[in-house]
Design a protein around this nucleic acid. Structure first.
Length: 969
RNA sequence: GCCCCCGUAGCCCAACCGGCAGAGGCAGUCGGCUUAAACCCGACGCAGUGUGGGUUCGAGUCCCACCGGGGGCACCA
């Protein structure tokens, strides 16, 4: 048997110790007992206002009470088990929730599971075991590990996204989105313009002729199938044949957000290829402006807000139409219309329709560098298009910066001066952004400049620069030059002025208009996997999707013999997705009566992405058992609605949402989108789902490698300080190298919560995690530091209980003045730190108070009870135990958090620092109420000050009564 | 390449609106308790805040440049 030095030998120690010492064994006994009691009593049942779930005593909440909704990011029940980094966020929310409850808020805190997804499916593929079995086992294991932490969750509100009852409502929301269209001109209740409306209203307007179809056809002339197609085109959830990210290695298509910048899948790191495939999309782009603008309504870290703004990528500019010699016209998008006079060529994406026809011969003036060695534009363009189409995203990424392209033979006419511009095609212009075509201004854009250098195209500067400015694009502000024609001159204007003037000129002449473009693309919503929500739609003879009626929900997954999608070699770009659900003919082909009599339909064989379930789970916590609605309107308003408490704000939302920053764009953007659709349709009362977002840091760990570079078990490493003060790390007598990073099995540095429960107990573990540092910073785990938190709780225990007899030792005598001051100072400080979510400093203040109490012969009951209550959010089990031993029958979970008496916070005297020339030269004990004049006089009279002034005249005295005087000579 | 966060004692970290650099913990040293040791109790802090400039009566805190660590974005016109 090998001894683990991180784990003290509990059994050997207890025999020599007093019976009632707060040892790990006693901690464990206390913790398990209280966890059972809390469960039996329903201590943490959150009370709904009348009509929902009552609290543990069967009482409902006053509808006017202040609600507080705390949430953790939805965990995925992994089979790997937890390490000590995982619970950090759960402990933080638990501490906050317990604190808020003691402050009088009606707190709702629950935890469900995001249980669809790849790992369970992949495990199922390997073992042949149904993913539901794996998932449920993992959930049970995770619930066991988390229960041992003593989290004050409402267990009645837990669920998994894989529950058939939950899937029903996920599918119901999908149908709401499917049955909607975006009316960009409709006025919202909140005064803004643009909102989702039921598709039936669009159909009615089409039928009545009050709204024209986009293509001008008459509704009356359309067949039923054509009408269906016309409506399907407008839906917020729609099927389209468009370029998608196909990942052969995973056998599924992926959303843009799931693909990394270098063209690989975020999960699995497989190559991703562009393929035209028929897939489901969500029209999230309709909400681009609202998703960007409403970031101002919520209390989120600036980092996450800027990541979302970046992802949405709104940019303002102009569309400009250029005539092409020979009759066509190309529209470009630019954010710099002020540089039009500097355009010396044009570039279109290789996929641009202009290239479907190109001149047969190179025009006059064609330079050798432009042709790529081809005899004609037709050949050159065909070759470049083929080359570009064959490039993978990975290759494209690797080539970024290196400019390739070819002249198309087309010449464009610059609308401001009639100059003929060669039109190139190059893959640095993307078909998917703007119009897929740009006017190239090498004098004002670095990419264009690089291209101009490579292809020998002239440069015209439109922004002035001082003599000696090096060549290259001028991208900053400055005075405009070289920019005038008969009807407009931008010369001398600043860049912003010139933008406005040029845009106005273009609009006036019908050559262009001001416009806004977005980087955000519609959300690709179908996956070719088994373990996800089936789409609640079927297809008829015309291949158009038809929604199933709500009465047919949920559509459950069929039992299939094989859960695996067809996967391919990761680089097999020519392969096509083949969903596992398609292998079940009995399920796919159904006879249904959808109002036209029984007919044969085909089901959709795709499933929804993992994000679907996590887009709305916060709503289900509020009303987990509702069979008639995803959430009742009353409960939604009480827990989540606008102004539901003093800090909720006009957009409403979850009061505190804690999770890692890795979901900054994906989950948080998707969920905001769904919430806004539900808001438009009247199903929720606020515009935003999450009011305050908090990103916790990560718990990192040291790992050690030996001379071969192999990892050695971190728990066997000891630290040695040499005579010269240098530190080396040694394992088994051999020096090893330390590195800092993640905790992981392969790094041999994993510490688990189970080990901590065993060696210290859950309360010590909680206190240590909270004491390590600010919640939002990452910090290294150090098992040997945990003992500090254990000593704190042991000392607290000893301040109340005699270790040998088990008797409560507190005295009913009144506390001394000194103790009262220490107590009330601590109460005021701890409250402030807890309110600011700084448990680390709150713990420091509690330790200070506890150390003071330790110095007393007997601890006064008033002080003991107060500190027990203040410790309760952090170390709830030992606090409950002490509270009970102090003679209280009920749990302290709902006891009021102590309030400081101002009288004990006022100091009798304060130390005033006297500085001469900014250096501290004397200290004065003065009353806190002293006036500036009196303080200055006192300072000037101080002998030490007189000595340092040395007769010099005081030029200026900075007085900040009562703490500081600074004398300047 | 661009943007964001973080650098304070051997280690993890405090320091409010710019006002005495130290709250708390670990490690360490000394003392007490003990036959002895562990536990426990008590005491002990010359690090001037990554580096270099600047603003200010006064800078860990504000500004500029750089160095180190972490993260995000990256041909988006």
């Amino acid at each position: 048997m090998t001894e683990n030095p991180t784990t003290p030998d509990v059994t050997a120690r207890t025999s020599a110790e007093p019976t009632f010492r707060y040892t790990p064994a006693l901690a464990q006994e206390i913790e398990l007992r209280w966890q059972d009691r809390w469960a039996a009593r329903g201590t943490f049942f959150a009370a709904d206002p009348v009509g929902g779930l009552p609290d543990g005593d069967g009482n409902f909440a006053d509808p006017s009470s202040s609600s507080f909704f705390v949430m953790d990011m939805f965990p995925y029940p992994s089979g790997a088990g937890l390490h000590v980094g995982h619970p950090l966020g759960y402990i933080a929310t638990d501490v906050t929730a317990r604190f808020r409850r003691m402050c009088g808020d009606n707190v709702l805190h629950a935890l469900g599971f995001d249980a669809f997804g790849l790992p369970a499916e992949q495990y199922a593929v390997q073992t042949g075991q149904h993913p539901r079995v794996t998932t449920e086992a993992n959930i049970a294991n995770m619930q066991r590990q988390l229960r041992r932490l003593g989290l004050a969750h409402d267990p009645r509100r837990s669920f998994a996204t894989t529950d058939s009852d939950y899937v029903r409502w996920t599918q119901w929301i999908f149908l709401q989105i499917f049955d909607s269209w975006y009316d960009a001109d409709a006025v919202r209740p909140d005064g803004g313009t643009g909102r989702a409306r039921p598709i039936a209203e669009l159909e009615a307007e089409y039928a009545a002729g009050t709204r024209a179809l986009p293509d001008g056809r008459a509704w009356a002339d359309l067949s039923a199938s054509e009408r269906r197609a016309a409506l399907n085109d407008q839906r917020l959830a729609y099927v389209s044949d468009s370029p998608v990210n196909w990942c052969p290695g995973l056998g599924t298509v992926l959303a843009n957000e799931e693909v990394t910048a270098d063209g690989r899948s975020e999960r699995g790191n497989f190559p991703v290829f562009q393929r035209n495939l028929r897939q489901w999309n969500m029209r999230i782009t309709a909400y681009s402006d609202r998703l960007a603008d409403d970031l101002d309504l919520i209390d989120w870290p600036e980092k996450v807000r800027s990541m979302q703004r970046n992802w949405i990528g709104r940019s303002h500019g102009a569309k400009v139409r250029f005539a092409i010699e020979g009759g066509q016209e190309v529209e470009v998008f630019t954010t710099r219309p002020d540089t039009l006079f500097g355009a010396t060529f044009m570039v279109v994406a290789p996929e641009h329709p202009l290239l479907d026809e190109v001149p047969a011969e190179w025009p006059d003036g064609t330079r050798d560098t432009w042709t790529g060695g081809h005899a004609s534009p037709v050949e050159a363009v065909a070759a470049y298009r083929a080359e570009s189409a064959a490039k993978t995203a990975v290759e494209r990424q690797a080539d970024a910066g290196r400019k390739t392209g070819v002249f198309t033979g087309h010449l464009a006419v610059n609308p401001v001066n009639g100059a003929l511009l060669p039109v190139f095609t190059a893959d640095y212009v993307l078909m998917g952004y703007g119009t897929g075509a740009i006017m190239a201004v090498p004098g004002g854009d670095e990419r264009d400049y690089a291209f101009a250098q490579a292809f020998d195209v002239p440069v015209i500067y439109t922004v002035d620069a001082p003599e000696g400015t090096p060549d290259g694009a001028r991208t900053g502000d400055g005075a405009i030059i070289n920019s005038s024609n008969d009807t407009i001159s931008l010369d001398g204007l600043s860049v912003p002025e010139a933008k406005a003037a040029m845009t106005a000129w273009l609009v006036e002449r019908g050559l262009g208009e001001a416009t806004t473009t977005y980087r955000l693309r519609d959300w690709l919503f179908s996956r070719q996997r088994y373990w996800g929500e089936p789409f609640p739609v079927v297809y008829g003879d015309d291949d158009q999707p038809i929604a199933l009626p709500v009465s047919m929900l949920p559509v459950d997954l069929p039992e299939v013999p094989d859960y695996a999608p067809r996967t391919y070699a990761a680089d097999d770009a020519a392969s096509s997705p083949e969903p596992p659900l398609g292998r079940n003919e009995d399920w796919v082909n159904v006879t249904l009566d959808l109002g036209e009599g029984p007919r044969q339909y085909r089901r959709d064989t795709n499933t929804m992405p993992n994000w679907a379930g996590s887009c709305w789970y916060y709503l289900r916590y509020l009303d987990p058992t509702n069979a008639d609605a995803m959430v009742s309107a009353e409960l939604e308003r009480y827990w989540l609605g606008p102004e539901h408490n003093a800090t909720a704000g006009e957009a409403g939302g979850v009061d505190l949402y804690v999770g890692g920053v890795e979901h900054a764009v994906l989950h948080l953007l998707y969920a905001r989108f769904w919430h806004k659709v539900l808001f438009d349709l009247g199903h929720v009362s606020g515009a935003e789902p999450f009011h305050k977002l908090f990103n916790q840091g990560y718990i990192q760990a040291y790992a050690y490698t030996d001379e071969r570079g192999a990892y050695v078990d971190a728990s066997t490493v000891t630290e040695e300080t040499g005579p010269d003060g240098t530190v080396r790390y040694v394992a088994n007598g051999v020096e090893v190298q330390r590195e800092y990073g993640k905790m992981g099995k392969s790094l041999k540095n994993v510490v688990t919560p189970d080990e901590m429960y065993e060696a210290y107990g859950a309360d010590t573990f909680r206190v240590y995690e909270m004491a390590m540092g600010p919640l939002d910073l990452s910090r290294p785990w150090n098992t040997r530091d945990v003992v500090g938190s254990q000593r704190f709780l042991q000392r607290l225990w000893r301040n109340v209980v005699d270790e040998t007899t088990g008797q409560v030792t507190v005295t009913d005598d009144a506390p001394s003045e000194e103790t009262l001051r220490a107590l009330h100072r601590a109460i005021a400080d701890v409250r402030a730190e807890m309110e600011g979510m700084r448990p680390n400093t709150a713990i420091a203040k509690l330790i200070t108070l506890n150390n003071h109490l330790t110095s007393l012969d007997r601890v006064p009951r008033a002080a003991a009870e107060a500190i027990v209550l203040m410790v309760a959010p952090l170390a709830p089990h030992v606090a409950e135990e002490l509270w009970e031993r102090l003679g209280h029958e009920r749990s302290l979970a709902h006891e009021p958090f102590p309030t400081a008496d101002e009288a004990y916070l006022v100091e009798e005297t304060v130390t005033c620092v006297v500085q001469v020339q900014g250096k501290v030269r004397a200290r004065l004990e003065v009353p806190p109420t002293i006036s500036d004049t009196d303080l200055e006089a006192a300072a000037l009279a101080d002998p030490a000050v007189v000595r340092f002034l040395d007769g010099r005249e005081v030029r200026k005295a900075v007085v900040r009564a009562p703490k500081l005087v600074n004398l300047v000579v």
